[in-house]
Nucleic acid binder design. Structure first.
Length: 943
RNA sequence: GCCCGGAUGGUGGAAUGGUAGACACGAGGGACUUAAAAUCCCUUGGCCAUUACCGGCUGUGCGGGUUCGAGUCCCGCUCCGGGCACCA
């Protein structure tokens, strides 16, 4: 009986669906294991062969863990909100809800064909009210919380109010926008509005006026990770800086915990490093400088406090409030002209063109160590958003300060012995300090001369703190996340405005549903599309709903019209999978306690600074609330590489309709043209299909080589325009899902990017056929009850060992060849023993589930192959009977000796030295040492 | 500029410091066949030798080093990929 993948897969697909084979419930009797894939954006193009790569890898692990006795949660859902879905809807002129629905249906159909063991009863969609209820709920919790730096966690905002009533802001350590200082009396005297403004400064979800990345074409603000090189990641549109009021999440409060948490998770070094860079911790000091001729001071941040004696000027960011305070009347016109010019430059221009620009404010600062006067400048190379927006410039030891000093002819004082600063600055943190202070300069007895840079930094910091000149400070590059988008297709904020002040929609009114609108297109001016809503579905409290607003006691309270960004819905979905239909809570304490956190998370590394940061932040916040039971959401992370497309070309002779095969193309003047890879097999063009592909090729003629038309090829991004998109459906149709699964894993290491190359797929298909034939004799299923031979057992146990190890280490690309070898060996051994073939089917089941299921059924089992047990291997079958020692020197094998397999190194050495062979062949030489590697060749050193 | 990875046949890729190139593809040759498909067998890093059997040399980006032994470890480069970047 032939291996017929179509019948087998159809049969088991419907059986699994009917029986809900992969449905999972909490089961305290079994250990849990949580496998998760990054859920897909259901885009309009459907799945290509790159998408299932991670799903297959995780499915193999899920099935393996199930066979190992674990209760495995392996859910799937859709990240349906956000820019991509909306852009697609706009492009196709349809409502996003409709296109999303269609795309999901298509994804589901494709996913089902591949034989994943997802529990579809737990499916979530971020755009459904039952789901985004909890996205909105989490936002409300963040609004009602502040970050207490003393206890290192989020606390209810009501604690803060109580505290202000008792002590004011004195002694408060909390994450905030700006340090505020007020007494209990002052607090009590504040109006409601003033109090709201103060609290907003501390809330974890807050309304803040910030510089944002504004993208006019997309009609929305974007988070930092959504902008690269001054253009939007999605669409590549220009992004400008704009100061607006936006909802923000105080992610920066969690910077240190986000950094520390990386030590506890099993992620790749590269992705941890990426996150560390993104968080950008830098340890330094904040120092106060007095303004000359005034008692006024300002603060700078530096990581090189040791270079205080080399400060020859100060620089303020153009956006800094200090600028107007420091500008003298004489310099005012010049400074204002500079600020205007700077404002006009976009982020992109600033990156593209790094000209040294700046202007003197007219003021001088006083060096707190030497009392020297230092000119204060303004320049756009200092950023307002980092540190204090002001720096002390040390041109000798900072390349940017150096360029500035050279351009404006400011003094450069070297502080490190042997450093040559005539051509460039010496930025390295090494060497021996000098000129600190220089001769003749009085620093009140303080000196760093002779110390190493490292010692000098520490010494200066200590001194600065002792003398009250400043304090040790840690800065982070990580900024708060901007959380509003002026778009339609996203979660509505559960917020309305009362007298212009934001209020949360009462919890019992959640979810606040996304209303229908007549126009959902974004606007360049930034008016949110939700402004078009004629009706908000907010009848739950029985209150009247009118245009854009809610009437309460006959007052109109407008609702927040922005929506949440794409990352909102994807930040806690792994928690929702634990308890997806719960209407009372995001997740029940019981479910959260059982499933805890994701044990294995698989997805692309492109989410390193987006989703994977936000999600960790969101989880830490929920952990502080006691909702999530684990500080880190994803224990082990595997990043699958991208699958690139392998494009094929035909070569058309110029100005003709004749196409010449690759090998002959060099003899003609040809134009390479992309050809659909689906009509090319092993680089051989199906010429008839080519004629039918496009009307203009109907009359095409070919110059063949060896009767074939050979196409050229190149590795490119998989995209429609290059005709190199390979759809998994076609592979499943032709070879079956099992072959697709095996082949995708065989292609190469999971984390590596690699081109899709359908050339090798036949090999995997052949392997399945060979494996099938092991179980059949002619048309009959033929598995015998005979005892297996020793050889059979050795093959089996070698395989069990290899496959188990490979699955545990995600080396699926080497597990597949192990199967091929084992099946080849068993075929040669003519093995038909059930006690070998049955475990073989189980071992195969994670990789080729349909195939294994069919065999399992034929072997007479009632349940599914998932109920089987992962076979254990026995080292005893793998042992060699003996070790062969072969001694070679001068390029010749001189003699061999056999030893029992369990012989010790010492024993082998001793017996070798004493052997007759040694005496004979090593005539006149003396054996110095015998090197023994268990089960391996041995080396003998002679003298 | 700083921080991570990586480099092995025609191709994808294997190799706890121990016979480099497993396995697969492709290619070449052969068997079966009227023919094709399918299937099976042999060869396949390079160079040399060859009358057959047996061989020889060389070889994991480049240059050094450690070691009885290095694709693997150490030092110095080259090239490629990724992250961060006027972050003080």
């Amino acid at each position: 009986m032939e291996y017929n993948h179509k019948d087998i897969e159809r049969k088991w697909r419907s059986k699994w669906a009917e029986d809900k084979t992969y449905h999972v419930e909490e089961d305290k009797a079994k250990p849990k294991y949580y496998v998760l894939n990054m859920f897909p954006y259901p885009s309009g193009a459907g799945l290509h062969v790159g998408h299932p790569l991670g799903y297959i890898a995780s499915d193999i692990y899920a099935r393996y863990k199930r066979l190992k006795g674990f209760n495995v949660l392996n859910p799937m859902g859709y990240d349906a909100y956000g820019l991509p879905a909306e852009q697609y809807a706009i492009q196709t002129g349809q409502h996003p809800a409709k296109t999303t629905e269609q795309n999901i249906a298509r994804y589901r159909e494709q996913l089902d064909k591949i034989g994943f063991s997802f529990d579809w009863d737990r499916e979530v969609r971020t755009c459904e009210p039952g789901y985004y209820h909890w996205t909105q709920w989490a936002f409300c919790q963040m609004f009602n919380s502040f970050y207490c730096a003393k206890c290192g966690k989020a606390m209810p905002i009501s604690h803060l109010v109580e505290r202000f009533e008792k002590k004011g802001s004195a002694g408060l350590h909390a994450a905030c926008g700006e340090e505020l200082c007020f007494s209990a009396e002052e607090w009590k005297a504040m109006s409601e509005e003033e109090k709201d403004n103060v609290l907003m400064n501390y809330r974890i979800a807050y309304l803040g006026e910030t510089m944002v990345n504004w993208c006019p074409q997309l009609g929305t603000v974007l988070a930092n990770d959504e902008v690269v090189d001054g253009v939007s990641v999605r669409g590549g549109f220009p992004v400008v800086q704009k100061k607006t009021v936006q909802w923000c999440l105080r992610v920066s409060a969690y910077a240190q915990r986000l950094l520390d948490g990386l030590e506890t998770v099993d992620w790749s070094d590269s992705i941890k490093e990426t996150q560390r860079n993104w968080i950008g911790r830098s340890e330094g000091a904040e120092m106060q400088f007095r303004i000359d001729g005034s008692e006024d001071t300002f603060t700078i941040f530096t990581t090189r406090a040791d270079t205080i004696f080399g400060v020859t000027f100060m620089v303020l960011a153009p956006e800094s409030e200090l600028v107007s305070r420091m500008t003298t009347d004489a310099q005012r016109a010049e400074v204002e002209a500079y600020l205007d010019a700077t404002k006009k430059r976009t982020e992109r221009e600033r990156i593209a063109d790094r000209k040294v620009t700046g202007v003197f404010t007219g003021s001088y600062a006083v060096n707190p160590f030497t009392q020297e006067k230092i000119p204060v400048w303004v320049s756009d190379y200092v950023l307002a958003g980092y540190g204090t927006g002001a720096i002390m410039a040390v041109p000798a030891h900072d390349s940017r300060d150096y360029a500035f000093a050279r351009h404006f002819n400011l003094p450069i004082i070297p502080l490190i012995e042997g450093a040559d600063v005539s051509e460039e600055s010496f930025d390295a943190k090494e060497g021996i300090v000098m000129n600190s202070p220089r001769e003749g300069v009085d620093a009140g007895g303080f000196s760093l001369n002779g110390l190493t840079v490292k010692e000098a930094i520490a010494t200066t910091k200590r001194y600065v703190e002792e003398k009250g000149m400043g304090r040790v400070k840690v800065n982070y590059r990580l900024r708060d996340a901007i959380f509003s988008r002026q778009r339609y297709w996203g979660e509505p904020f559960p917020v309305y405005y009362k007298n212009g002040r934001p209020q949360l929609v009462p919890e019992h009114c959640l979810p606040l549903e996304l209303p229908e609108v007549t126009k959902f297109l974004p606007t360049e001016s930034g008016e949110p599309p939700l402004g078009n809503a004629t009706r908000w579905a907010w009848d739950t409290v029985g209150e009247t709903v009118t245009e854009n607003a809610r009437i309460d006691n006959e007052t109109v309270f407008p609702l927040e019209l922005s929506t949440m960004p794409g990352f909102a819905g994807s930040s806690a979905y792994y928690l929702r999978y634990m308890d997806p239909r719960n209407g009372q809570a995001l997740v029940s304490p019981e479910a959260a306690e059982y499933w805890k956190s994701v044990d294995l998370y698989i997805g692309g590394s492109e989410h390193a600074t987006g989703h994977l940061i936000y999600s960790r932040f969101w989880n830490k916040f929920l952990f502080d609330l006691g909702v999530s039971v684990s500080e880190e959401p994803f224990q082990k992370l595997v990043n699958q590489g991208m699958i690139q497309g392998r494009s094929n070309f035909v070569y058309r002779i110029k100005d003709t309709n004749t196409f010449v095969s690759k090998g002959l193309a060099k003899d003609y003047d040809v134009t390479p043209i992309h050809v659909d890879v689906n009509i090319v097999q092993n680089d051989v063009l199906d010429t008839e299909a080519f004629k039918a592909w496009r009307p203009e090729y109907a009359t095409a003629e070919f110059v063949l080589e060896d009767g074939k038309y050979i196409c050229g090829w190149a590795i490119e991004k998989m995209s429609k325009s290059m005709y190199n998109v390979v759809n998994p459906d076609m592979i499943v149709e032709k070879y079956g899902a099992d072959t697709l699964r095996l082949y995708e894993m065989f292609l190469g290491p999971i984390s590596q990017s690699k081109p899709w190359d359908s050339n090798g797929i036949d090999g995997c298909y052949r392997f399945l056929k060979k494996a099938w034939n092991l179980y059949h004799k002619g048309d009959d299923f033929a598995v015998s009850a005979d005892a297996p031979s020793k050889e059979n057992l050795k093959t089996l146990h070698k395989l069990i060992k290899k496959v188990t190890e490979d699955i545990e280490t995600f080396s699926y690309n080497t597990a597949v060849p192990a199967f091929m070898i084992a099946v080849g060996e068993l075929a040669q051994q003519k093995c038909a023993a059930r006690s070998v073939l049955e475990p073989l089917a189980v071992l195969l089941s994670p990789f080729a589930p349909f195939f294994a299921e069919e065999l399992w059924h034929k072997l007479g089992h009632e349940g599914t192959v998932c109920d089987a047990e992962w076979p254990a291997f026995d080292e005893a079958y793998l042992k060699e009977d003996s070790v062969t020692l072969s001694v070679s020197f001068n390029g010749k094998t001189r003699f061999t000796l056999d030893f029992p397999a369990d012989a010790s190194k010492e024993q082998i050495e001793k017996e070798t030295l004493a052997s007759e062979a040694a005496a004979k062949y090593l005539d006149g030489k003396q054996i110095v040492k015998v090197i023994v590697v268990p089960g391996r060749i041995v080396n003998i050193v002679v003298k």
